[in-house]
Structures are given as structure tokens and as C-alpha cells.
Design a protein around this nucleic acid. Structure first.
Lengths: 352, 352
DNA sequence: TTGTACGCGTTATCAA
DNA sequence: TTGATAACGCGTACAA
């Protein structure tokens, strides 16, 4: 049975060198007031003794943890894991750690996680809201104590806080307009929960595009779900059974869109000739599915980076009081799944 | 300019209630020695005053942070993000936080991250090694201070530490044997860095399967790379240009395997008739690509869960001294990309 | 250039 | 059932 040794502290080093703990502390932090030689000697001995600074003690004293808290719905979603990657990169460069929490799209869990992170005295909090969340009081403590709070992607407009988002409305509008220009006239939509900004705005973009081109908005063509592959498959089955089925689907994410392609193909339809499909996110599967999926490009990593920069900005510059909303650009990556006009033309000419 | 208020401490509560801070501390932690009424009164006032426990102070005093550190090569890889998901889930249930760090496959970064996590006095460390890492001294401090250290997937056998792995050898052997049974005779292999256990063992499994069936081991058919899609594509081009090209590829991951399928298809080959392909990991793309990819099932989430349980086990049970190596089962998920026999038979009979 | 003394917020220990 | 006191390891006024 190993006896775990006591850890080395600055006092141990001080004792050996016959200096004060203060001097050791300063030397280790390269304080200018400490002599070159002393500093060197301290560092040398520290290394030799296997000294490891105790961040906990330092944090308590300095009232600063150098840690950024993150709450996301699910870590393993492609968009989210890229987001985290961006957060971690910028945080790391600035000397910050990152504590990650999943809300699992549950309001209750989100509340608990927020409290825990607050108790851990994180220096900033980055949040992408849970599906269920409609109340934001659990973030008040952060606001009240001037802890930078940044929402990403799934945000709240009911709170004073920084936001890093994309223009979901425009993206969805462009996607839908693209389908219209490809000759589609009955365009269905896979929609998400409408109290979450991202899904509401995507639906609004879709509807406005239809209106601009004087196409009817048919509620039977709007399918609400959690946008999983399963729901995408079911939604497609439902749509294809309609007496007047759609000639296109604009899905609020890629998973459901890919499922739509697979389901329609199994039903004997040709993509995009019989059914054009556009997704959202540019997940890796979107370029692998056949035909490749036209989709909206989401700058996930950049969103993480920028959100983190916002946190850091507030830390450095205490004067920054007003909150900012940063809107990032999206792109429409056109692949085969939506090229109905071209596809139809080719097949008429007997090409391919 | 908002003046940030002072945070509420147990002293503030104690003062208001005319009790000692000790009593407040105990009441908040439901210590049995404190009276029902006092406890209730303390909790009520704490809530009213907006008290939030300071985990930092508690950690310093208790010498326990309730935090598990994690170092992984890249957060956004499907396997890794699932792994993290599993870690987070179990840690959360046990009341632990998780600090995540990426090594970006760099040795230097891994060392820095390990030091930082140590300084943060994490109660346990879970590591999946960086590609570059060949030296393990940066983990000594954890061992020496009895901080549970668990390696996952990419592990070191040169250190006394817990390991959670899969049987890469068997998985690769089965994959290769499957190809042989499908009638393949010249099977190529996409291999990774040989000093990392996972890639070395996969290659060994591949070689041993060939030997078992008296097939020659042809070094020109083994392509070493980082197993990215780009490298998978290049590797396939190289293989197809050989004077005696392979009739199958067993890739050490799915990315390179999917690229192989796409490259071969573009070159006019039929999968699996002209080239059978098997991958490794069961990433989402493997079931989306066409034809769907036969691949090895990796219990990523479970590996994360189990690794975390190992950490907790060591915390609870200080007697557990010897380290454990837990080997999880893999499966071979057979999809179309490897069904050469069936495919050939069907095409001969003019089916499909 | 270095040292003294104290406090960060909590909890363990001992005493009442 | 409650309280006084010290201690966790470090950083910072202030003094020398």
C-alpha cells in the first residue's frame, strides 16, 4: 500500500533556499522585483523537487479560475463537437481551461449544469440552449456578477447577453429560393421546435421564400419533429403518401435530409428528378450520401472561436458593457440532390 | 458601470442568523448534527440571499476537486466525441465535472495539457494518446500521487495504469478473414502509425489472417498514412495503378475506407465486385456511403463510461492497487461493400 | 530586492 | 446540537 506523499508547496522550496514563500511565489511568476539569480535558483529547485503549482489555491486567492464553462445539448453531434473544438482552441491559446457539460436537451439538466459551473466560478460561460429551455433565470447569477455570458447558435433574445449566430432566416430563404429556381413548386419543410430561434427562423425563411414567388404555404407540407434520421424517414413516408406529394424537401438539418433521400430512393423515386432535397449544416454525411446533398454551410468551428473571443474580450476590457450579437455568414453548397432542372434536362436529352 | 457586488458567503448567512459559519456549512451539507429547524432556516436564508457555494474554496480545503481531466487527440472525431459523451454521462451521475483538452496529436501539447490538469488537481485522468507520443513521463506525477490514470483506445503498455481497449488484433483478423471468405486473394491494408497500439495491432491481425490462409504478405499492398480521406483517396489511386492491383482493401478506419470506395467508383470499378472494402469504427458515414461499408463496431460510448467507472472505482476503493486492462468486444457489421461473393454470383446470374 | 502578515471561502478538529 | 480556531496553498499590501 503506497503512502501518498505530501505535495510540494512554495513553502517547501522557500525553506530549502532560506528565502520567504513570497519570494518563491514571485520568482515562479517571473516578478520583476526578484533578482535574476534568485529566480533561477527557485525555478531550478522547484523543478528538482517536482513542484506543481496548485491552481486551486491560486484561483481562490486571485478570484479567477482561468476556466470557461460550456453547456451544449449533445457533445457528439457533428456541429457541436466542431463548435467545442473551436472553443477549446482559442481558450487554450489564452491560457484558459474548458469545462464541458451536456444538457441532453433537458431544461432541468441545463439548470443544474449552470449552477455547478457557477459554483466552480468559471470566468465565462458559453451556452447553446437545450431544446426544452424557455426560461432563463438560471443564467441570472452570471449576469449579476459580471461573468461574461455568450450564447451560440441556439440563443435567447430575451436576455442581455452576447450572441454568436448565423442568419438562419437568410440561409433558409436562399435554400428554398434555390429549390424554386430549380423548378420545384411544392416544397415541403422538415421543421424543428418553434420556440428555438434556429428552427423558427429557418421555417420563416422557408415561408417567406414561398411567398415571394407566390407559392402557396401548405401546412400539410410542414413536418415538425426532432429532426433525427428516424423522424426524417417517417416524415418522408408521410409526405410521399399525400394525394399531392411534394417535389422537394427543405430540411432544417442534414440527418433528416439524408434519411429523406434514402427513404425516397427505397420508394423508387429518383433524386433530384422526382424529389429534390436540401439540408442544413454540411455534416460529413451530406457529401457522402448519394446523390450528394445540397446543404447550408455552418461555420461551426469559427462560431466556437468567436464565442470564446467574446468571453475573453469582456474579461480584458471591463468597460465593454453593452452586449453584442455577431451574425456569421452561411453559404449554400449546391450538390446534386437539388439540381432538378439540370437533372431533368439531362434525362430528357438522354444523357447520363 | 456596474459595481460587481461581493458574493454571498457562509459568513454572511451566519451573521444574519446569529449562528456560526460552521453551523451554516454543516447545515448546507445536511450534516446530521445540526437541528432540523436550524438546517431549514439556513437553507431558506441561503436561497433568499442568493448564496452559491464556492467549489474552489471547498476543493482547496478538502483536497478534492470532483473533476476528471480528459486528454484526447481531437474532440470532433466521431469516435472521440462519442467517447467523451460516455465519460461525461458517468462523471455527471457521480457528481464529477469534466475538463476536456485536445492534444491535436502533438506530443508537446499533450505534455502541457497533462501538466495543466495536474495543476488543477483533477481527481482522475483519462487519456487517449496523441499520435506522436512515445514517452510517458508527463504522466508520472499522476501515478506518484495516486491519481487514477486510465488510458482509452490509444494506450501505453509501458506504464502501470488502467486501460480500456478493444481487441484490435481480433477485430482486424476477423475483418480480413471475412474478405478472404468472400473470395478476395490480394487484400491491401491502409495502416496507421505503428508505434500506436491500435494501428499496430490492426496490421498484425491483418497479416495473421493472411498467413492463416496461406496468402502472401505483400508489402506493396500495405499503405501507411494518417488515414484521412485525402490519404485514403491517394492510397487507392496508388493501389489501382499497380501492375497487379488488389481485389480488396481493409482500412484501419472508416474515413480512408469511404474515400477508397469513392475513388474506386470514379475509376470505374464496381464495389464490391472489382474491389471489396472493409473499414473500422462504424462512423455514421459508413452506413451512408454507397454501397454501405462493412466495418468494425467500436463501443465508443461504453469505453468512455467504463474508463470513467475505473477512475471512480479507484477513488472509492483506495485498496485497489493493481491496474486493470479491460478489453471490450467488437463486432463485424457486414454491409454491401464487402459482399463480393454474393455480388459476383448475382451479376453472373443476371440478377439485380 | 526581499520579507511579514493576512485573507480568499470552506471544512476538519477539538472543545463546549 | 453548536462554536472557536486553524488550515488548505497561494498572492498581495505594506513594510523594511
Amino acid at each position: 500500500m503506497k503512502k501518498s506523499k505530501k505535495e510540494v508547496t512554495i513553502y517547501d522550496i522557500a525553506e530549502q533556499l532560506n528565502v520567504s514563500a513570497t519570494t518563491v511565489s514571485r520568482a515562479l511568476n517571473d516578478h520583476f522585483s526578484i533578482g535574476k539569480e534568485t529566480t533561477l535558483a527557485v525555478k531550478k529547485l522547484a523543478k528538482k523537487m517536482g513542484y506543481r503549482p496548485n491552481t486551486i489555491a491560486s484561483s481562490l486567492r486571485k478570484n479567477k479560475t482561468n476556466t470557461i464553462g460550456v453547456i451544449v445539448p449533445w457533445i457528439h453531434r457533428p456541429f457541436i463537437s466542431s463548435l467545442i473544438s473551436g472553443i477549446e482552441e482559442v481558450a487554450d491559446k489564452a491560457g484558459y481551461n474548458v469545462i464541458i457539460s451536456q444538457s441532453c436537451d433537458s431544461f432541468e439538466k441545463e439548470v443544474t449544469k449552470a449552477q455547478t459551473l457557477y459554483s466552480n466560478r468559471v470566468d465565462g460561460l458559453i451556452v447553446s440552449l437545450a431544446m426544452e429551455t424557455k426560461n432563463y433565470e438560471h443564467f441570472y447569477p452570471f449576469q449579476q456578477n459580471d461573468i461574461p455570458l455568450v450564447f451560440v447558435d441556439r440563443v435567447s433574445f430575451e436576455m442581455e447577453a452576447d450572441r454568436v449566430i448565423i442568419n438562419n432566416f437568410d440561409a433558409a430563404f436562399n435554400a428554398t429560393e434555390h429549390l424554386i429556381k430549380m423548378g420545384c413548386r411544392r416544397i415541403a419543410h422538415f421543421a424543428g421546435a418553434q420556440h428555438r430561434n434556429v428552427y423558427r427562423e429557418r421555417q420563416e425563411g422557408y415561408i417567406n421564400a414561398l411567398k415571394k414567388y407566390n407559392l402557396p404555404v401548405d401546412e400539410t407540407l410542414i413536418v415538425y419533429s426532432n429532426l433525427s434520421m428516424e423522424e426524417g424517414w417517417k416524415g418522408t413516408e408521410y409526405l410521399l403518401k399525400l394525394s399531392d406529394p411534394p417535389d422537394a424537401i427543405f430540411s432544417a438539418n442534414d440527418s433528416a435530409a439524408v434519411a429523406a433521400i434514402q427513404c425516397a430512393k427505397e420508394a423508387g423515386l429518383k433524386i433530384p428528378e422526382d424529389l429534390a432535397v436540401v439540408g442544413f449544416n454540411n455534416d460529413r454525411i451530406s457529401s457522402i450520401v448519394e446523390p450528394p446533398l445540397t446543404t447550408i454551410t455552418h461555420p461551426a468551428i469559427d462560431m466556437g472561436k468567436i464565442a470564446t473571443q467574446q468571453v475573453l474580450k469582456h474579461k480584458e476590457n471591463k468597460d465593454v458593457v453593452q452586449s453584442e450579437t455577431i451574425v456569421l455568414k452561411t453559404g449554400l453548397t449546391i450538390r446534386t440532390s437539388s439540381l432538378r432542372k439540370v437533372a431533368i434536362k439531362n434525362s430528357v436529352q438522354g444523357l447520363r
